[in-house]
Amino acid sequence: MNAKSVDLARLVRALGQRSIVLVGIMGCGKSTVGKRLAQRLGLEFVDADTEIERAANMTVAEIFAEHGETYFRSGEERVIARLLREGPQVLATGGGAFMSEATRAEIAERGLSIWLKADFDTVMARVRRRSTRPLLQNPDPEGTMRKLMATREPVYAKAALTVVSREVPHEAVVDEIVVTLADHLFDREDETASQTSYS
């Protein structure tokens, strides 16, 4: 199956009220790819960090600086739980969001998680272009990133689906996501149909 042959209307129907939830390390492309994916599927794109900033009337960096990471994470859990009730949509989550067991449970119930898996060099090349990452504001951002990836990747691997995000045009990654979603959702539909016909 290639992306051009996927019936997008059927894909969105199979999704139902669930959100497509993009998870992964900062710089893996959740926002840039997410916007294009939403456009392709005719769904709304929502960035959880933007929604958190709107709710708090502060930037993520300011929340970290003033209140610390624990405070930020509890707000993040609440905002993502609320957003998931507003599906279907394409939801990009912050790099640490999926580490929360409560958030993973909410996503499993109301969404379909996709890990955008990127390698260290790709991620570092991208995050260097933006100096606003609170977790990298230290003398050794590379070391910090390696530690974050080592801690988080086993948890990201619990996502329902995985797509590799690499240095190719964003549309190519969107194509891969569409095919991966179709394989997953249409297989489920076919299983349900065959079970129904035998019952």
Rank of each mutant, 00 (worst) to 15 (best):
Leu136Val: 02
Glu53Cys: 09
Glu191Tyr: 15
Thr144Asp: 10
Val12Ser: 05
Val174Lys: 00
Arg146Ser: 08
Thr192Lys: 14
Met26Pro: 03
Ile63Leu: 11
Val168Glu: 09
Leu43Glu: 12
Ile52Lys: 04
Met26Cys: 02
Ala97Thr: 09
Ser194Asp: 09
Arg13Gly: 03
Ile63Ser: 10
Ser199Arg: 10
Glu69Asp: 09
Val79Cys: 03
Ala172Thr: 13
Ile25Pro: 11
Leu8Asn: 04
Phe120Tyr: 14
Arg78Cys: 01
Leu41Ala: 00
Asp190Gln: 14
Gly87Arg: 07
Arg133Met: 02
Tyr156Pro: 10
Leu15Tyr: 12
Thr132Asp: 15
Ile80Gly: 01
Ala157Lys: 07
Ala160Leu: 10
Leu135Cys: 06
Leu37Ile: 06
Thr50Cys: 04
Val6Lys: 08
Arg130Val: 07
Pro154Asp: 08
Leu11Gln: 06
Ala108Cys: 06
Ala92Tyr: 01
Leu8Ser: 05
Ser100Cys: 09
Lys4Leu: 14
Leu91His: 05
Arg82Ala: 02
Arg166His: 12
Glu101Phe: 01
Ala14Phe: 08
Glu106Tyr: 12
Leu37Phe: 06
Gly94Asn: 08
Arg13Pro: 01
Glu76Gln: 05
Lys158Arg: 15
Ile114Gly: 05
Ala3Lys: 02
Ala55Val: 11
Ile107Ala: 12
Val90His: 09
Asp183Lys: 15
Arg54Val: 09
Ala14Trp: 15
Thr144Trp: 00
Leu8Pro: 00
Gly96Val: 00
Leu84Thr: 02
Glu171Lys: 02
Asp119Cys: 08
His184Asn: 09
Tyr156Cys: 11
Thr93Gln: 02
Met26Leu: 01
Ser5Val: 06
Thr32Lys: 06
Glu51Tyr: 12
Ser197Gln: 14
Met124Arg: 11
Thr50Trp: 15
Glu76Asp: 10
Leu148Glu: 09
Leu112Cys: 06
Phe64Gln: 01
Ala105Leu: 11
Leu136Phe: 07
Gln39Thr: 11
Tyr198Asp: 11
Tyr71Glu: 12
Gly143Met: 04
Leu11Arg: 12
Ala125Trp: 01
Ser74Ala: 11
Gly27Lys: 14
